[in-house]
Write a protein that binds this DNA or RNA. Sequence first.
DNA 1: TCTGTAGGCGTTTTT
DNA 2: CGCCTACAGA
Length: 747
Amino acid sequence: MGSFDGIFDGLNEGQHQAVATTEGPLLVLAGAGSGKTRVLTHRIAHLIGGCGIPPESILAVTFTNKAAGEMRERIEKLLGPVAEGLWVGTFHSTCVRILRRDIGQIGRSRGFVIYDDSDSLAVIKEVLRRHDLDPKTHDPRGLRWRIDQWKNQGVLPARAVEEAGDLDDELSAELYVTYQRLLADANALDFGDLLLLTVELFRHYPEVLAHYQRRWQYVLVDEYQDTNRVQYQLVRMLAAQHENLCVVGDPDQSVYGWRGADIRNIMAFEHDYENAKVVKLEQNYRSTQPILSGASAVVSNNQGRRDKEMFTERTDGAVIRRYEAYDDRDEAQYVVRQILEGARGGDQAYGDYAILYRTNAQSRGFEEELLKYDIPYVVVGGVRFYDRAEIKDVLGYLRLVVNPQDDQALRRVVNRPARGIGKTTVDRAQQLAQQQGVPMLEALGRLVDSGQAGRSAKRVVAFLELMSGLAREVPSRRVDEAIALVLDRSGYLAALAKEATPEAEARHENLKELLTSAEDFHAVNALSPDEERGELEVFLDQVALISDLDSYEQREERVSLLTAHSAKGLEFERVFMTGMEEGIFPHGNSSRSEEGLEEERRLCYVGMTRAMNHLTLCWATERRRYGERSYQTASRFLDEIPSEFVEVIQSDAAPRQSFGGGGGRGAAQGGGFDEYAQDEVSIDYSFNQEGPDEITVRKGMRVRHPVFGVGTVGAVVGNGLDQKLRIKFDRVGIKTVMLRYANLEPA
DNA sequence: TCTGTAGGCGTTTTT
DNA sequence: CGCCTACAGA
């Protein structure tokens, strides 16, 4: 096999073999930092450029849009635009694509919408209501979790009912039936459905499956250790004929068991595919010896591991630091000071640093500390941009236009902004809808026609007119125009402007950001529009499937804050792993079972191996949890690192007298005084957007606000993230604006 | 119908 | 501690 344009240049033996083995089943066991993306991209480039395989015959599946995007980019770099017809996508987006074409076969409409977490939770609550169950005794999130598990396992409602083991299960299964019916009525699919229904489609319609089998002669799967049962089945079906299947993964980085991922999928690959070849990539190109050895030592405590011995040629390097903080504040201070020192020394950029933690809630303390020193940062994960209330409101209108059956969207938008259509009216509409078997939007109309709308009839008519107006105009517009139209016609923007609170200001900012991203979307989409589906539909699909992580980009000028889970696949020059305490990492909910604990340990391995040159592990003897003081012990994982790789640093911080608010109300006075004591604060916008950048605002200073005009700064209220400024504006009087969002400039 | 407040509850990780 | 929900009052 000849090399093509240096596709094989610079690959080590294992990588070379993985790239060159194009036919038949192949398992690539790729340890952390072993160049697995390189293997995948070069393999695809080799298939196309070297073997002459048409790009449209290749399917590459990843878990995140970000990974998919990066892969495509790197392939295009290797091959140029030849890669056009190549399909690189997530499991979910791939399934959407299949279902948009063929879901009609299993009796569903191709115009379905995708329900996200909060939509599906709302449906769950509706299910409980219909079964006369109290959400207090029947936890909606628990039920959703149970249903999700079923879907991950490939279990349809009927089978769940059949196989229910006890009364509890039986009830859950019945609720699953109702849930699924409600989704169908709304012409909606949840995340789990995308995978589950695709597998069902393939199972019952072999000719449909055959179509995709013929089309995708070569299938590649990234992060195979994270596949769940349905994903496993899907891959298996697609590859069944040709078995040109290459899966890449690392059992030591399997950290999504709670989401249904089954580590056995990767462990049993050779059993599943008889002629499978196995390639191990054991050279780590990322980390120094102490980091790699420390991380390997931790994960080697897991039982039943697949043997893998990682090595690095970077045998020098600083030892791992272990910092023992007095409390969580001390921990945050230490980390931020280290960052400050590194950056002031001039050698490090802020972007070289990542602060990792186990749970999103832990970010807050670090954010406040970073804010104090004006250090730019980005928090990855947590609340999705598209999950913010105002964004979902606006998208709700668009969803309802695209799919008038979308009851969740209707419930969301019908009274936002407040237009006097309250609970009573909505409940009536809901009842009528249920009785007559029509969507709620339709039911609203019938309510008016039959004179049952009472006092709110007029307002309901106005709403229906608004919706039909939008339905008429939106389809012919660009997405960004459609959004602008909704904002205007619905009175949403006007209501926000009238509110004139810092929160409203923040929401307005987010909506502007939405408009910008819609413009960007249009610009890209216009280049290769989908022939069958409108721009808006494609936009809504994308929005439903995008995660916060997907839009994250590492930038030189800002520190990254993220969970260990989110950090998977990334690398940083310097990493702080924080909250390394029993109960947090390993997390209390996972430490009870041995499998849970092993997954935590793998997660620890993932976190540690993100570091290229410097790794610091922090823990605190005391920590505020649920607002209460809790005494912590060091994570067992810390003691699993051989001491030769570790330097222990003790905090010299003096124990503080009290914890912020302490136990009693009396402390609030102190806090209150403190809040108003500040008279100078500087604002750094750079973590939020590009652009200019930092100004210092002083009490008495004249500033210009983009909406309220010129004014004089009064007081600075609050601290940290919630910091607000009270400003007396010349035109509109005293307003409080939120520091983070008010785009102030000196006047 | 809307707004304010008190109480309860929770936090694991996310496509 | 902070968010969300349920409920009471206007």
